[in-house]
Design a protein around this nucleic acid. Structure first.
Lengths: 195, 195
DNA sequence: GGATACATGTAATGAGTTACATGATTCC
DNA sequence: GGAATCATGTAACTCATTACATGTATCC
């Protein structure tokens, strides 16, 4: 139901829009928060219209349908935000890779972390720009909270990558050309506590 | 394939384990990084064994199977980490809720953000403890990088929530009992740029 | 003997991705 | 007229959750 809430939110905040335009939001402004492809968006919009949460307000040029949120849709969004328990399940592939780093030779590990560092450095810049744009007088701050969160989270990830590179040792030590695992290798077998 | 990599990583780093024990990792140490239920873990382990990435090393008491990673499994983990492009897709329900906050009346918005604040405050504490435990002499630092990342990210989220509460205004203003939207309401209709 | 934790599986359903498929408008 | 973009949809597949189903060992 998160996708549904996201669509309702976009329609409430930015006014009527087509499935195409909504999909574009997921690949642009909303991409640091939630994502969805058009193949997921169109059927969901159809279901929401069937449920009376949105209406086809206008049919435009290339078969375009402009959807507008109904009163029931507004209520559903409010209900979802206030009454449904947030799903805080984490499934973060970058963090997973971080978890797995110690299984790699040190040099390889450093390279990987450096890649993340560059990536989050860039993302932070992008999000900072976005946030500053949203803080402008007219934009009414929609997306501002999320952009600020994005800036803070990507800063944290960038700084973590800085820290990790340092931890892993950034200089080539004298014991050249035989990397060896970053921290552990096959380790601790025979931990049987039960049988 | 992220689940597969996570399982291989656990087996490489902590040695042979049962599906049950691996599943427990996803609800404990790994829960801030990746999650999976037993109904997903068991079939995946079976597929991995069929593919020769792991072996049933021992069959224990209650039908328990202890899996050990093979050389092919180690290689697959290395390959996944170094050759596969990380999936950086974000699908963060908390951030989505942040995005949607401005559609709510101010008072309700503040309550919601306060809940997040408490939650991330707690999570940060937990992760800090976990990280400090992992930094101990014996643990060889496995999970340390991920725990550090978790601490940094949840700190960022907690601090964002602090900031957001302040932005939304924490004091009851004199215009009591008629909340009104936090920032915008139905807003800006008729943005048609195309037709 | 009963509760709890250990231990493994399957089935139905929902969420999300990739690929297939089609056509209209606009810009050059 | 050709390319790019607008615009919507469906089908097959993978990934993930919830619920169903079963049985064993251990602790009290």
């Amino acid at each position: 139901m998160a996708l549904r809430a996201a669509l309702l939110g976009l329609l409430v905040a930015r006014g009527p829009a087509s499935g195409y335009a909504l999909t574009k939001s997921f690949s642009e402004s909303l991409s640091h928060v939630w994502s969805a492809r058009h193949s997921q968006v169109y059927p969901e919009l159809a279901r929401m219209a069937a449920a009376g949460l949105i209406d086809v307000e206008e049919e435009g040029p290339r078969g375009r349908k402009r959807y507008a949120v109904t009163e029931a849709g507004r209520e559903e969004l409010r209900r979802w935000l206030t009454e449904e328990e947030p799903n805080r399940t984490v499934r973060n592939e970058v963090a997973l890779r971080a978890f797995l780093i110690p299984t790699l030779p040190r040099r390889t590990a450093v390279d990987l972390v450096r890649t993340e560092l560059d990536f989050y450095s860039k993302r932070r810049q992008e999000l900072t720009q976005l946030r500053d744009a949203l803080a402008g007088p007219d934009e009414q701050g929609f997306g501002y909270y999320a952009a600020e969160l994005g800036v803070r989270v990507s800063s944290a990830m960038k700084e973590w990558a800085d820290w990790a590179v340092e931890q892993l040792g950034t200089e080539d030590p004298p014991d050249d050309e035989d990397p060896g695992p970053a921290a552990l290798a096959r380790s601790t077998d025979g931990e049987g506590r039960d049988s």
